[in-house]
């Protein structure tokens, strides 16, 4: 399906799009709807309009699964950098799954230290509270193997690609496991340092060339060539 893409700048009038409460990329001003950021306006043939910002930040949302970097800890909680303006909180009680009649270890901060990554879900976030995290769900918890690479949150969509085409290409060509968190942190698990390095370079390339066409093919070629050179 062909589509008509153009770059819009802040203040530009956009027709046929309704601003939602969550997203601040477009807003109503008087009788007009305008963009508030630089972004790509994609007018599809069937009349569907999509606006994706080029720059921007990650705003936490309840239910999002994010990867956070532990930056410090308080008396009974850790503080995590989740690549957003708000510092996330993970409580010791939650991390150890403490229920009634059980207790967290005496030295909880030995088990999760500053500089380590955690995969967690946001359970609560609003205008007056910082995001509260939980690891009590399937697949969540401290990241113990592989590596984490942090990209710009607006480029996450490109790393996944249309209907997952880019991430599928990455999986197929490198054989690694990827987890792309909405806040722009990507967990790569390869079991091989060379493959991991290739995957990281590929993702960095995707981030840099996010708004170019034919990227998936180029990435595929790059990974195949690189694997030949490194012999993995």
């Amino acid at each position: 399906m062909s589509s008509n893409k153009r770059i819009v700048v802040p203040g530009e009038v956009i027709e046929g799009i309704t601003p939602s409460v969550q997203e601040f990329y477009v807003f109503n001003y008087g009788d007009t709807t305008r963009a508030s950021m630089i972004g790509v306006l994609d007018i599809k043939q069937d009349g569907q309009i999509n606006f994706s910002p080029i720059n921007g930040i990650y705003m936490p949302r309840e239910g999002d699964v994010v990867i956070g970097l532990v930056t410090s800890h308080g008396v009974s909680n850790w503080f995590l950098d989740i690549n957003s303006p708000y510092q996330a909180i993970l409580s010791v009680q939650d991390f150890f799954g403490v229920r009634q009649n059980s207790q967290a270890p005496e030295d909880p901060f030995r088990y999760l230290q500053i500089g380590e990554f955690v995969k967690a879900k946001i359970v609560a976030f609003d205008r007056i509270r910082n995001p509260l995290l939980t690891v009590q769900d399937k697949g969540l918890g401290k990241i113990v193997e592989g590596s984490v690479i942090i990209i710009h949150p607006t480029k996450v969509a490109r790393v996944i690609g249309k209907k997952g085409s880019m991430i599928e290409t990455l999986k197929a060509t490198t054989g690694c496991e990827y987890f792309v968190a909405v806040n722009g942190a990507i967990h790569i698990k390869c079991g091989n340092k060379d493959l991991e390095a290739i995957a990281e370079t590929a993702i960095e390339t995707i981030e840099k060339q996010a708004h170019t066409s034919g990227l998936t093919e180029r990435i595929k070629k790059f990974i195949e060539e690189e694997r030949k050179i490194r012999g993995v």
Binding site: V9, P10, G11, M37, I38, P53, I54, N55
Partner: peptide, 12 residues
């Protein structure tokens, strides 16, 4: 610079 930073502004 504000536009480049991706901070929502009403207009340039």
């Amino acid at each position: 610079a504000l536009a480049d930073a991706g901070i929502p502004i009403k207009a340039l």
